[in-house]
Design a protein around this nucleic acid. Structure first.
Length: 560
RNA sequence: UGGGGGAUCGUCUAAUGGUAGGACAGCGGACUCUGACUCCGCCAGUGGGGGUUCGAAUCCCUCUCCCCCAGCCA
């Protein structure tokens, strides 16, 4: 189901939007996608992107891309650029590009308003003192000795914090709420801290930077966001979100709605761990095809359509969940099955000599580019006396239901004719070196005799024309479903040592060698592959395995 | 053990007092010049216990389990 015309299944957020539109609470829907530019987007972010942009799209509204860039220590323009590229690649275009930093002046002015109304104060305790006085989950906090500072003094101090008169950590601005609140977020949260560092967009203009809770809701309000969608961990920030907007003359009061993050098994999703994988060299970079990042998935050969269809199928709810990687794999198979041109490639070649085929002669056989889509036409595939077939497609002493080649047995060569194995030639090492076969000319594809049926069909590549290729077989990054399940063990211990297998022996149809970076194929009977965007060169192809084909034979005959 | 959330087939998700449905996985079969695709069928669920109701996944009570919160991160 790669097309997205499948019936829209609803979810609780969509239902809220529908209700708000029907009741007249809102005339339109305005959402935002608010990443912090401190890392790359991953498949989980795609859920939020699809939700925010998809909802606005469905109801004729708009979506802003807003960088939540309130922490200059961790953020960079490079990340911001990569994020924009990823959002566009996913297939969405924002209405307006905004930054929380665009609002620094307004945020400051609103903070001054808070100070003037006595609902914020400058606290001069150290970070440690503030932490110690916050209380615990079961005990109330203690009020700061600076809590009742006169308004004028707060104003003066806050202004001087802004002017850069103090060192990092000397003062903070805190909202004056309730140190005994059972919701820890309401215990006089810090809303501004001093950071004497330049910001990637505002440069040296600011020495104080707003905290998330202060910046986010106000940014939403300034943009006229109707529904501010975020993940579950912000649920107990909502009272604060609402409190802030009630304290200031905000242009509107968006509704924060929380939903569950989208987790996948056999991987990790937190930016911190993803960063660790990259920095410690466990993977090749943010775009390593094993990474759940959008950059990684893209390089792996995943399409935006598949990712969108995947999240559409998964839906939105509030229950914590870990989705089986198999569902994502199913989504990309569905999409690639429809779009990928078919070709033949042999990963582990075994030589076959057709004894009754003239030496030095090339026969060009016609093969469908896509059996289910004849409009895509045909390709010509060279066929010669010497061929490569997959080593696993031959067994001297096969088990029951092995439909492939065996001594004395017959098999169809895909797009060509039926061959029979007449002999096995061994090398000095005792390994099978080549197969001597004869072909039945009457069974050529398209000929009347082609109707003759044999149980198995195998793929092949002409030894004379085949182009050798590097093939990278990617598998899941971790060997256990949840690498974080055991609290006292490092998730790195569970990295799958076989997550990348490099095959240097592969031989592909000549046409494949000319493919462009990013071009994908189905290697018939094997899987979907894509030219690596970085390393594949004309004549020197490097192909990444996106996903295998479903393989009911492998399920039948589990590997030893 | 304070506060905030969440529990529906193995997994994800619908059902908003009226037949518990779909997708993925699994199993069986048909088809097949890809052991793919496609098609058909099957298996499988409301965390436990009470209550209200003609009728409860849905409302009430209670219990259990899981997640989040004590950053000058977001």
């Amino acid at each position: 189901m790669s097309n997205e015309s499948t019936a829209q299944t609803t979810n609780f957020i969509r239902n809220i939007v529908i209700r708000d539109l029907e009741s007249g609470k809102h005339a339109t829907v305005v959402t935002r996608f608010p990443p912090e530019p401190n890392g790359h987007l991953h498949i989980g972010h795609a859920k939020s992107i699809c939700l925010n942009f998809g909802l606005a799209q469905e109801f004729g509204g708009t979506t802003n891309l807003r960088f939540d860039d309130t922490n200059p220590l961790k953020e960079s323009e490079d990340y911001a650029q990569a994020i924009m590229a990823d959002v566009r690649w996913l297939g969405f275009e924002w209405n307006e590009l905004r930054h929380a930093s665009d609002y620094f002046q307004q945020l400051y002015d609103f903070a001054v308003h808070l100070v003037r109304t006595g609902t914020a104060y400058v606290d001069s305790q150290t970070a440690e003192e503030i932490r110690a006085a916050r209380g615990t989950l079961t005990e109330p906090g203690r009020e700061s000795p600076y809590r009742d500072r006169p308004v004028e003094e707060n104003l003066d101090l806050f202004q001087r914090m802004k002017a850069g008169e103090f060192g990092d950590g000397e003062h903070v601005l805190r909202a004056r709420i309730d140190m005994a609140a059972s919701n820890m977020n309401m215990r006089d949260p810090v809303i501004y801290r001093i950071r004497n560092v330049p910001h990637h967009r505002t440069g040296d203009a600011w020495h104080i930077y707003p905290m998330y809770d202060w910046a986010h809701g106000i940014s939403d309000a300034l943009e006229g966001i109707t529904h501010s969608l975020c993940t579950l961990e912000f649920e107990d920030h909502r009272p604060l979100y609402d409190w802030f907007l009630e304290q200031i003359p905000a242009p509107c009061h968006p509704q924060q709605i929380e939903f569950a993050r989208g987790n996948l098994n056999y991987t990790v999703m937190s930016k911190r761990r993803l960063l660790q994988l990259v920095e410690e060299g466990h993977v090749d970079g943010w775009d390593d095809p094993r990474m759940p990042t959008l950059a990684g998935l893209r390089r792996r050969g995943y399409t935006p359509e598949a990712i969108r269809a995947f999240w559409a199928e998964m839906g939105i709810s509030k229950s914590d969940s870990i989705i089986d990687m198999g569902v994502l794999e199913n989504a990309i198979r569905n999409d690639l099955n429809e779009r990928a041109p078919r070709t033949m490639a042999v990963l582990d070649p075994l030589k076959v000599v057709l004894d009754n085929f003239p030496a030095g002669e090339t026969e060009w056989v016609e093969a469908a580019v896509h059996p289910q889509r004849p409009e895509l036409g045909v390709r010509k595939v060279p066929l010669t006396r010497e061929l490569w077939i997959e080593r696993s497609d031959f067994m001297e002493d096969p088990p029951r239901k092995f439909f492939r080649l065996r001594p004395g047995g017959e098999v169809r060569l895909r797009n060509a004719f039926i061959i029979r194995c007449e002999g096995v030639v061994r090398g000095a090492d005792g390994e099978i070196a080549e197969l001597r076969c004869v072909f039945d000319p009457d069974t050529r594809s398209g000929q009347p005799g082609a109707a003759r049926r044999v149980k198995g069909t195998i793929h092949w590549v002409s030894a004379m024309h085949g182009v050798s290729a590097e093939v990278r077989l990617y598998d899941r990054l971790f060997r256990v479903p949840n690498p974080l399940a055991e609290k006292d063990r490092d998730f790195l211990e569970f990295i799958n040592p076989d997550s990348l297998g490099v095959v240097s022996t592969a031989v592909v149809e000549p046409g494949v060698a000319e493919g462009a970076p990013g071009e994908c194929y189905q290697f018939e009977r094997i899987g979907y592959f894509v030219h690596d965007v970085l390393d594949s060169k004309p004549g020197k192809p490097v192909l990444n395995r996106t996903v295998t084909l479903r393989d009911s034979w492998a399920r039948l005959e589990p590997k030893p």
